[in-house]
Each structure stands twice: as structure tokens, then as C-alpha cells.
Amino acid sequence: MRILSYAEAISEATVEAMKIDSSIHLFGIGLDYSSGVFGTTTEANSFFGPSRVIDTPAMENALTGIAAGASLCGIRPVVIHARNDFMFLALDQMLNVLSKWHYMFDGRASNMPVVIRSIIGRGWGQGATHSQSIQSVLAHFPGLRVVMPASARDAKGMLLSALNSPDPVVILEHRNLYEVKGEVGQATPLEGASIAKKGKDLTIVASSVCVQESLIAADQASELGINIEVIDIRSIQPLDIETILNSVRKTKRLMVVDTSWTNFGLGSEIGASVLESGIALLSPLVRLGQANSPAPVSKPLEDIHYPNATKIFSVAKQSISYKSSEIETVDNLPKIADDFLGPY
């Protein structure tokens, strides 16, 4: 058993895969800095150097198209964005080229095995344009794989799988998970949700850092005798609805906790699927995520903007005691990376 941080796990997967597959090249801004995208490319750069670890100009859209073109001719590019928000510039190539290339040529064109690593920011006032979480947008368009590793195990395992996949894969990492440690092993599947904690009273489906926060809330709830089932969604596209439905059939209660806004979000999609399934819930669906405003900088506003374990716990109790008059007060539970001070 090996314990690594999420960031170390990404670095280890990158170096392991690059040793085996000489066609893997990394592209992005700052890859060869000593800081190496928060330590995730430092080791790759020292092993493989500038012929395979490319510090590129600021050119997100063309770079994604260049990665796509290179992938047609035998290169396995990994495009890295230090924040999701910069990746928005590449949406043309991601949504018009990467997501459609296989389908629109009926599988007769070459594969486009591009891996895009992009980091979601949160905390220390990162504000409106360094904190966005784009999974719903990317998952809306058929053709991309969109995954959100919530643990060091998946941070390594899903990157290894992405680097073996013939499909374009977008890996949305969370900056607040970078220092979180966990066991790491080999490749883990690119699709399929996993049950992070078993329970019978309420199903919480969570993405990325929200999985860790939901687990804290679930542990607190179990002290009150409430058994929450926490599902780590892992892959947004394709979405493993079956695992969710099987859980909700048992618990009859559902909360979705996501890193992005609730409107048109992961919770909306999962909630609609549960509605379509005909399962009757005992309490109303709950969606937690960023409040529906751009992310504010000021600390008191930032604190209420994002979901956290305390909010999840509080809302979980309301869900379970729905229609009962008794709603207990809530303690302040630990926050993930609440002491986050950068680097950004």
C-alpha cells in the first residue's frame, strides 16, 4: 500500500505512463517551471525534458487543435490548464473538434486520444474567473469523456486509464484536493460511479472535493445514528445513472453535491433521471453547489458561496427529518483546504 497526495499521484501517473509510452507529450503554460503546475509536472520535466514537456505560449484554443492534429498522427498529447477558466478559450476545439471527430466521420477518421488536465480553483479569494467548474457544459456535448477524480487513487488511476484510452478525455482536478493523501494503485476505470460509504437513509451523490466533504458530513451523521450512502460520481460523461438509481431505490432520499452551480448542473441531470425512473422519494430532492452568482472574493461571502461539510450535514438532517418539526442546530465541521493560501 502506498500513500501519496493527490498531486503526487498525478505526477507519478504521468511519469509512469511516459516511461512506457514514448508518444506521450505534455503541453501547457508553466510545465517546466520549478513549481511545475503545483508539482504535477516537475518530475516529468526532469525525466523527459523539453522534447516531451513543452512550455507553450498562451494559445489555449490553437493548442487544443494542435494537440488534436498531433493525436491523429501518433502523438498522445496531454494539455494542461492551471485553471478551468483559461480552458474556456479552447471550447471551440474541444466542442467542435474533439467531441465530434469520431462520430461525424463514422469512425473512419483516426482516433483523437487527447487528454486535457484542468484544475478547478477555490478559496483565498480566487474570485469569479479562477474558480469555475465546467463539467456540466462539457458533459452536455456528446463525445467527450469528462471525469472528476475525488481521491489520490483516482487522480493516478484515471490519468493512467486516460493515457490508454482511444477517446478524448477531460480530467477536471480540484486544487483543494492536491494535498489530500490517500492510497494509490494502478489504473482505475474511466466510467462508473463508486460507493464511497454505504448507508440506507439518504443517498448523497457528489463530485470531486464534494465527495470528501460529504464523507465528513456522513461521519458526523452516523454519530446521530443516520446512515448516509455517499456515491463518488467519478465520471460525469458518461454518467453512471444505474448506481445512483440502485442506491435511491434503497434510501428513497437524494442529495447531489457538486463543485459547480446548481442551475443546469449535475444535480439537475441526476434529479431528472431519478424523476424519469419513477422512484418515489420520501423527501424532496436537494441540490447543493455554488450559489447562483459569480464567485465573490470577500471571505464571508466566499464562505456562504460554496458547499461545505457543515452545510451538507445540515441539509442532510433536514432531508431525513422532512415533515418532522424537529431540526437540530448544526456544528461547524472541518472544511477541506480551508487554510488554502496558494500557490494558485
Binding site: N61, A62, T64, G65, I66, A67, A68, G69, A70, S71, L72, C73, G74, I75, P77, D92, Q93, N96, V97, W101, F105, A109, S110
Partner: peptide, 20 residues
């Protein structure tokens, strides 16, 4: 390798193939 109607895409794709 393919054609694509969104302006500029053929330029980026060809640059990528040339990189390979």
C-alpha cells in the same frame, strides 16, 4: 485526414500533425 468548416481549425490541426 478531414475537413472542418469552423474557421482556423484546419490550420491548428495541420500544425499538430506537423508536430507529430
Amino acid at each position: 485526414y478531414g475537413s472542418s468548416p469552423i474557421l482556423g481549425q484546419s490550420v491548428a490541426l495541420a500544425a499538430g500533425a506537423a508536430y507529430a
